[in-house]
Amino acid sequence: MNRFTVTDLPLAGLKLVERRRFGDSRGFLARLFCAEELAATGWLQPIAQINHTFTTWRGTVRGMHFQRPPHAEAKLVTCLQGEVWDVAVDLRAGSPTFLHWHAERLSADNARALLIPEGFAHGFQTLTNGAALLYCHSAAYAPGAEGGLHPQDERLGIAWPLEIRELSVRDAMHPMVEGAFEGVAL
C-alpha cells in the first residue's frame, strides 16, 4: 500500500509529496520517508543528514540556499508545526526552466512535503508564528560548496505572500543573480 501520493510540479524533477495519515481517536501515524516508495521519484540516495528548523515569527524568510557539486543535494522538506510558503528555484545550467520558481504551502495540517532535486535553491517564508520544518538531505552539509541567492532578487521575482518581517544577515548578503550566472552544472 502506497503511503504517498506524488505529483509532478511545473519544474522538472520537483515533486509534491502528500502523505497518507492513518488515525483514530488517539491521533494519527504518517510515514515521513520511505526509500522504497520515494525511489520512483528519483530519490535514490540514502539520507545523509536530517535537520530541524524552528522559526519564531510570521513573515520571516530563510533562503535561498543550495550546494554545488560534488555536494549537490536533494531535499525532502516537511512542515511539522505551523505553516510555510516553501519555494524552490531551478538553478540547473541549461534547464528550460532556469531561474523559474515554484512554491507550495506546507503545514502541519496538510501532510505535504516538497521533494527538491539537486540543482535547486530552496527557501521559505513562515505564514504563522512558530513554524518548524524537518529536512531530509541526500548529502551532508559542505561549507565550501554552499551557495545562496538573495530572496528579494528582482530577476528571480519570487512573490513572497507576506511582507518580509525578518531576514538573517547571512541571507541578506546572498548575491543577486548577475548576467554571468550560468547556474549549477550537475
Rank of each mutant, 00 (worst) to 15 (best):
M1D: 06
F4V: 01
T7F: 14
D8F: 08
L11W: 06
L14G: 04
L14F: 12
K15P: 09
K15T: 05
L16Y: 10
L16W: 11
R19M: 05
R19W: 00
R20C: 07
R21W: 09
D24W: 07
S25I: 15
L29W: 09
R31W: 00
E36T: 05
E36W: 07
E37T: 01
L38H: 06
A39G: 09
W43Y: 03
I47D: 00
I47M: 00
A48D: 06
A48K: 01
A48T: 03
I50H: 10
N51I: 02
T55R: 09
V61P: 02
R62I: 03
G63K: 04
M64T: 04
M64Y: 06
F66N: 05
Q67S: 08
R68Y: 11
R68H: 13
A72K: 02
E73H: 01
E73R: 00
L76G: 02
L76H: 01
V77P: 07
V77N: 05
L80V: 12
V84E: 01
W85L: 09
A88N: 02
A88L: 04
R92P: 04
A93Y: 08
A93L: 10
P96H: 13
F98W: 08
H102E: 05
E104G: 13
R105M: 10
L106C: 12
D109L: 11
L114Y: 07
L114F: 10
I116E: 02
A121K: 09
G123K: 03
F124G: 06
T126R: 09
G130M: 13
G130R: 14
A131R: 06
A131H: 07
L133I: 08
L134N: 04
Y135C: 09
A140R: 05
Y141R: 01
E146S: 04
E146W: 01
G147T: 02
G147E: 08
G148F: 04
H150T: 00
P151A: 10
Q152L: 14
R155I: 07
G157A: 13
G157P: 11
G157D: 12
A159M: 11
P161C: 13
P161I: 10
P161L: 13
I164W: 12
I164P: 12
R165P: 07
S168W: 03
S168K: 08
R170T: 15
D171W: 01
A172H: 14
M173P: 00
M173V: 01
M176T: 12
V177I: 15
E178F: 03
F181G: 10
G183N: 08
V184C: 12
L186S: 13
